[in-house]
């Protein structure tokens, strides 16, 4: 693996910024270089939220996402806003509830996968706060970008102690949505 760009986008309150930060921390635990950036603006409360992670085996050049390899979308606003920026060979993971009936023309079924991420988060916590961590589980099972054990460790240390068990459960649930991490 060389450079890998992952973007998680959704609404404020879905935990996408925390999820991105944790993924970057996990990459560092695996000895990789990582950067994390987030949409920063007046929309930080309530509106759209976005988290970009760049992971590389070597030192990272441009620290922001330039051609997204894996785009995770957790609400329909984020879909409209970010799907045009998906790289040519990029893959879209989209929450089942917000997937539009007709995908944009440049997307075809082979590079789009739907998972019930937000629904799973609701089942686990009664709200959407762990949606980002469920999404992280999906990302890990789908793309295997970091060591799973490192990701568990980063989740355990990256969330408030009282929410540790819930978030670890959310991570496992996300991985199970894909059918577990590929060997």
């Amino acid at each position: 693996m060389s450079r890998n760009e992952i973007r998680i986008a959704g609404a404020g309150g879905q935990g996408v910024v925390t999820a991105g930060r944790i993924l970057a921390e996990a990459a560092i635990l695996c000895g990789r270089a990582a950067t994390h950036s987030q949409a920063y603006g007046p929309q930080a409360r309530g509106g759209a939220s976005r988290s970009d992670v760049v992971i590389d085996t070597e030192a990272i050049g441009f620290p922001l996402a330039d051609e997204v390899d894996l785009l995770v979308i957790l609400n329909s606003d984020a879909y409209l806003r970010y799907q045009p920026e998906l790289g040519e060979r990029g893959h879209l993971i989209i929450d089942g509830d917000c997937a539009p009936e007709h995908l944009s023309r440049h997307l075809c079924d082979s590079n789009v996968t739907k998972y019930p991420v937000v629904e799973k988060a609701r089942l686990l916590s009664g709200g959407q706060l762990v949606a980002g961590i469920v999404a992280l589980g999906v990302v890990q099972a789908f793309a295997n970008v970091v060591d799973t054990e490192a990701l568990r460790e980063a989740v355990a240390t990256g969330v408030p102690a009282r929410h540790k068990e819930l978030n670890l459960k959310a991570l496992e649930a996300g991985m199970q949505l894909v059918g577990g991490v590929r060997a």
Binding site: A33, H36, S37, Y40, I60, L64
Partner: peptide, 10 residues
């Protein structure tokens, strides 16, 4: 600039 200020980097 703002990007270097806010981006988290290892």
């Amino acid at each position: 600039d703002e990007i270097i200020g806010h981006t988290r980097e290892s």
